[in-house]
């Protein structure tokens, strides 16, 4: 048996071979076109204990994201900015390959791609959440977990993170300022809240190239067989705010071809978010 199947189960090998055979004929599992996303379901407020949360199903990929706020000290070089921390893990429930333990390079890469999308998009007005410059700011935690991994976890996790942030409620900055002396003794969850206003919505779209053919939203088996995977994150203005070549290489022309497809698909995902009540 070929070495590329090392550490794979028989079921995975069958799926991979099937994905390859189908893509060779321009087909995909479930009659999906090359430029079609799988069904997307977005549900917000799924974790009541968090300040904001969302669960996203993208085909059989399931991601849960939660937003939490804490008070903390700003970084020395950015005394007038709130702090954002985006971290994600693929839980051991997610697939036969997923392992418990500290994040590996794959998980770190995914988290950092989503972090860059949120950070660089201007989605969060970091200056708004400063209590005392240089001393106390709000720390914004976005944590996401992959519960089940059937591929394209970046697009799914980005949707979950964005939906959780856009529907989050943040402790009132004014209230914290007024009660700053006693605030250390108050549970942050008890502080009155207001809607967390997002200023932009970044949308990540991952594009695959198989034998020169461009496809969107690869599932886990397709991720194994495509030559190239690249993610573009777009803003509502049509600008790009993050790019990451995840796998393989591509020709100069293919860079712009995949960019155009990503742009078209970003409009589609933006519409789905809007239908779920998430828009600017």
């Amino acid at each position: 048996m070929s070495e590329k199947y090392k550490n794979k189960t028989l079921a995975e090998i069958i799926n991979i071979e099937q994905a390859k055979n189908l893509l060779n004929k321009n087909l995909r599992k479930g009659d999906r076109g090359l430029l079609d996303y799988r069904d997307i379901k977005i549900e917000t407020g799924t974790i009541k204990k968090a300040f904001g949360s969302a669960t996203v199903n993208l085909g059989d990929t399931v991601v849960v994201a939660g937003v939490n706020f804490e008070l903390g000290t700003p970084f020395i070089d950015t005394p007038n900015n709130a702090i954002l921390l985006v971290e994600g893990e693929i839980l051991p429930t997610a697939s036969v390959e997923a392992e418990a333990g500290p994040p590996d390079e794959h998980e770190i890469e995914i988290s950092r791609v989503i972090d860059r999308g949120i950070r660089e998009s201007g989605m969060i007005n970091f200056e708004k959440y400063v209590i005392i410059p240089g001393e106390t700011v709000i720390k914004i935690f976005v944590d996401f977990n992959i519960i089940n991994d059937d591929g394209n976890i970046i697009d799914a996790a980005n949707l979950a993170a964005v939906a959780a942030l856009a529907t989050a409620e943040i402790p009132k900055v004014e209230y914290i300022r007024e009660h700053i002396d006693e605030v250390n003794n108050i549970n942050i969850k008890e502080i009155p809240r207001e809607s967390f206003k997002v200023e932009e919505i970044p949308i990540a779209n991952t594009i695959g190239i198989f034998d020169g053919k461009v496809l969107v939203d690869p599932d886990a088996a397709e991720e194994e067989v495509v030559d190239t995977l690249i993610t573009f994150t777009h803003l509502s203005t049509g600008e790009i705010c993050s790019v990451q070549l995840l796998k393989g290489g591509l020709t100069y022309e293919e860079v712009f071809k995949t960019l155009d497809v990503a742009y078209q698909k970003n409009l589609e995902l933006r519409e789905i978010l809007k239908n779920n009540g998430i828009s600017l």
Binding site: R116, I230, L235, Q244, L245, V255
Partner: peptide, 14 residues
């Protein structure tokens, strides 16, 4: 003539 690393962060129009 192949791109093997491509990253971007910030804001750019097409």
């Amino acid at each position: 003539k192949k791109v093997v690393l491509l990253q971007m962060d910030g804001k750019l129009t097409h």
